[in-house]
Measured scan of single mutants.
Amino acid sequence: QVALSRTQVCGILREELFQGDAFHQSDTHIFIIMGASGDLAKKKIYPTIWWLFRDGLLPENTFIVGYARSRLTVADIRKQSEPFFKATPEEKLKLEDFFARNSYVAGQYDDAASYQRLNSHMNALHLGSQANRLFYLALPPTVYEAVTKNIHESCMSQIGWNRIIVEKPFGRDLQSSDRLSNHISSLFREDQIYRIDHYLGKEMVQNLMVLRFANRIFGPIWNRDNIACVILTFKEPFGTEGRGGYFDEFGIIRDVMQNHLLQMLCLVAMEKPASTNSDDVRDEKVKVLKCISEVQANNVVLGQYVGNPDGEGEATKGYLDDPTVPRGSTTATFAAVVLYVENERWDGVPFILRCGKALNERKAEVRLQFHDVAGDIFHQQCKRNELVIRVQPNEAVYTKMMTKKPGMFFNPEESELDLTYGNRYKNVKLPDAYERLILDVFCGSQMHFVRSDELREAWRIFTPLLHQIELEKPKPIPYIYGSRGPTEADELMKRVGFQYEGTYKWVNPHKL
C-alpha cells in the first residue's frame, strides 16, 4: 500500500502544474464570482478556492472578487462561507491571508454602469489591468444573457486571457439551449467557454479513460460480442427537503440524466481518441451522441416518491408533501431510460440510465454486464461477469466473477477481482471535483468540460421526450421513500436483457 498525506498529494500536483506551459504561476489572475451571495458560491466555490489557495495550487498573485446585487462586505462573505471551509486552528494565518486577497463589488446584473465599476475595481488591483480574468457564473440561467453581454462589453482583460465558467442547466430543451449557446458564442470563442459538469471532475469518471485505453485486457472485450448491457446509475437517499420548488422546474431527467449520466455513457462508449488533447476527446464523445436516436417512450419509466409510513423524519414525507412543490405536480423524481448506440461496436446493446431521489442508498456507478459463458459445464450455477466502476461513495473498480467454492467439488461461487483505489492508495485525500475543474480552467484544459456541439446532441436525444411529458403530463409511478424505485423499472431492465441475480454482496474494501 502507498500512504500519501494531503501535503504529498498537493506537492505532486504542484510539480505537475508548474512543469506545464499552460499554468502561468507568476502571472496575476483575477477570479470573479458572479452571484457571490448565492448558495453555490457559499457552499462550493469559495470553499474550493480556499482549498486550492491553502494547498498552494493557485497562481501566487490571485485575487478573488465577488459580485452580486446584495450590498455585502468581505466580512459578510466570510461569515456565510467559512463554515464550509473546514479550516483547522493551525490554518488561521493562512485564512487571514486568503481573505486579504478577497474583495466585493455590489451591482445589478443588467446595468452597464455596475460592470464599469467592477472593471475599475479590477484595474485598481495590483497589475489588475493586465491580469488573466476568470469569470464564474454562479447564477440562474435567466440572467446569463445580460451578464455575459455586460462582461464582454465592460470587463474583459485587454492583455491577459479571459475565460468564463457556465453552470448547468444549459437551457431547458434543445431550442433554449441553442439560443443560449448562440448568444454566448457570439461574445466569446469556444476556447474561452467552460460549461461545467462537476461529474466530469470526479476521480473515477476520469479513471474510465485510463482503464479503457491503457489496459490491453479490456480492449478486445469492450464491444457487443461480449457486453450484454451497460447500466449507469445515480441514486440519492434523500428527497427534495424543502427545495422542491427549484427541482420541480427541471425534474430528474434535466437535473441528472441528460448531463451526468449521458457524459458517463460517452466515456464508456467512445472510441479511442487520437490523443488526450481536449478536442480529440470531445470529438469522440460527440460521435457517440450522434449514434444515439431520440428516446422512445416505451423505453422510459418515470416515478415519484411517496412517504414511507414506517419511516422516520423526512422519510415519512412524499414529494408532494414538500411545501415548495406545486400542488398535484407530476414532475418525476425517478427515471429509467434505455438508449442504444447504433454503431458497429455497440449495435443492440442497451445502455440503461437510472437516477432518482429518496432511494435506498447513495450511489453513482457504471456497471457493464457481460454475456453468459458459452457451453456451460457447471449446471447453470454460473452468474454473469460484471465490471463495476463505483464513482461514489467509496470509489472502487471491481470485476464480479466466478471462482471455485472451497471444498471437494467443482462448485462455482461469485467473488470479485478488486482493482480499488483504496487498497493501493491508503487514506489518500484526493482533490474534489470542483478543485480539479477550476484548476483545469486556470490551465486552459477543456477536456472535462462540455463543448457546444456535445451539448446540442445531448438535448436532441431528450427534448422530444421532455416535450411529450410536458404536454401529456403522465402521472409518475409512486414508489416508497427509501425503496429501490418503481418495480416497473426493474421490469424494463429485465425486458431489454439485464439479469439481476441478487445473490452477490459487494464487500467494501475500504472497511476491511
Rank of each mutant, 00 (worst) to 15 (best):
E470W: 08
N360R: 05
A396Y: 05
G497E: 09
R390W: 03
E312H: 13
N298R: 15
E365Y: 05
R495G: 13
Q392M: 08
Y398D: 03
G303W: 05
L417P: 00
H379V: 14
R460V: 03
G502I: 07
V373Y: 06
F409C: 15
T333K: 05
L417D: 04
G497S: 12
Q381N: 13
V306L: 12
V288E: 01
I438S: 00
V373P: 12
P323F: 06
P412R: 08
S293L: 07
H260Y: 01
N427K: 09
F378I: 07
V428E: 15
R282Y: 01
S445T: 12
R362E: 00
P406C: 15
K272Y: 05
D432W: 07
K290V: 03
N343L: 05
M257K: 04
E470K: 06
T333P: 04
T420M: 07
L320F: 10
G444L: 01
T463K: 00
E365V: 04
T420I: 08
F409E: 15
E361P: 01
E413C: 11
V397W: 07
M264A: 08
P326I: 07
L417W: 00
R456W: 08
F410I: 15
D372C: 07
L439S: 11
G328I: 10
A315G: 15
S293C: 09
L267F: 05
P406G: 06
A374C: 10
C291F: 10
W506C: 03
L289A: 08
G375D: 15
L417T: 08
V441L: 05
R424E: 03
D321W: 06
L339N: 03
K426H: 08
E312A: 13
V256E: 08
D440E: 09
Q296H: 15
G497P: 00
A489K: 05
P273Y: 02
K494T: 14
L419S: 05
P393A: 08
P406R: 08
T276Q: 12
L437H: 00
Y500G: 02
V286A: 09
R436A: 10
N423E: 14
N423A: 14
P478E: 12
N394V: 06
E386D: 00
D283V: 00
Y504V: 05
L455Y: 03
A297T: 15
P412T: 12
F498Y: 15
R460I: 03
D440A: 06
L359P: 03
V397R: 04
V295T: 10
E386V: 03
K505M: 10
I389H: 04
P326S: 07
L368N: 05
N259L: 00
V441C: 07
R451I: 03
V388H: 01
I292W: 00
L267G: 06
P350D: 00
P350R: 03
I292G: 04
R460Y: 05
R436G: 07
W506D: 04
E472C: 13
T403W: 07
E294P: 12
S445E: 13
R424P: 04
I389K: 02
T333L: 02
G313E: 09
P309T: 12
R384F: 01
R460M: 06
V301A: 13
W459L: 04
T487P: 15
P431N: 13
A315V: 15
E435L: 08
E294F: 12
L289Y: 07
G482Y: 07
L466W: 00
A396I: 02
N343M: 06
Y479C: 02
R254Q: 00
P323L: 15
P323E: 15
V337E: 05
V428W: 08
G313Y: 11
M493E: 13
G485K: 01
N343H: 08
G318V: 00
V281D: 05
E284I: 05
L466Y: 05
L465Y: 11
P486H: 04
G348A: 05
E472N: 12
E386G: 00
V349Q: 04
E342H: 14
F410H: 08
H448F: 03
C382D: 10
T316Q: 15
G303V: 04
R460P: 00
G328E: 13
D372S: 11
T463A: 06
A335F: 03
L339P: 06
R484S: 03
L368P: 01
I292P: 02
D440V: 00
A269K: 01
H467T: 14
I377T: 11
F370G: 03
T333S: 10
V496R: 15
G422L: 10
P393I: 03
V391I: 13
G303F: 04
D432E: 12
P478M: 09
N411V: 10
Q304D: 00
Q499R: 10
Q381K: 11
M493H: 10
C291Q: 09
V428P: 12
R354A: 01
Y340F: 13
W346F: 08
N308V: 08
T503L: 15
Q468T: 13
C355K: 03
Y398W: 12
V268Y: 05
D310E: 15
E501V: 09
G356W: 03
V300E: 04
T399V: 09
L437V: 08
Q296Y: 09
C382S: 15
L419V: 08
N411A: 13
H379E: 14
Y340R: 12
S445W: 12
F378W: 12
L439E: 08
Q499W: 13
I477H: 14
G422I: 11
T331Y: 00
V391C: 03
E454Q: 05
E491S: 13
K475G: 12
T399L: 11
G422T: 15
Y305R: 02
A364Q: 06
F410C: 11
D310Q: 11
V391N: 04
K383E: 15
A433R: 01
I469F: 14
K357D: 03
V366M: 13
N299Y: 10
D322H: 06
H379L: 10
I477L: 15
E386H: 02
V288S: 08
L320I: 10
K363A: 05
D283E: 07
R362W: 06
P474M: 14
K272I: 08
Y504F: 06
C382Q: 13
S275L: 05
Y340Q: 14
R367Q: 05
H371A: 11
G313Q: 08
A489E: 06
Q468F: 13
F449I: 04
M447D: 04
H379R: 11
D347K: 15
R254K: 07
L439R: 11
R254T: 06
L471A: 11
Y481D: 02
E470P: 05
D283Q: 03
R367G: 02
T463N: 11
E457D: 08
A336Y: 01
F410V: 12
Q392Y: 07
D372A: 08
T333E: 06
P478T: 10
S415I: 06
L302G: 03
P486W: 06
M447P: 07
E365M: 08
T331M: 08
P478G: 12
N308I: 09
E365D: 09
Q263D: 01
L419M: 13
A458S: 11
F351A: 02
K404Y: 02
P474G: 12
G328D: 15
N308H: 14
H467Q: 12
Q369P: 01
E386K: 01
K404R: 00
L339K: 02
P476V: 10
C443E: 11
Y305M: 03
L353A: 05
P464G: 12
T463W: 02
E365S: 09
M447E: 00
L265N: 00
L387W: 04
A358Y: 04
V256A: 08
T503G: 13
Y421N: 01
R367E: 04
D322C: 08
E435I: 09
P326N: 06
F351K: 00
C355Y: 01
L262Q: 08
E314D: 14
R282H: 09
D322G: 05
A458N: 02
S415N: 05
G311F: 09
V268S: 07
D279C: 10
A458F: 03
W346C: 04
S415T: 14
F498M: 15
Q468L: 13
R390K: 11
L353P: 03
L339A: 13
E342N: 14
G328W: 10
V366W: 00
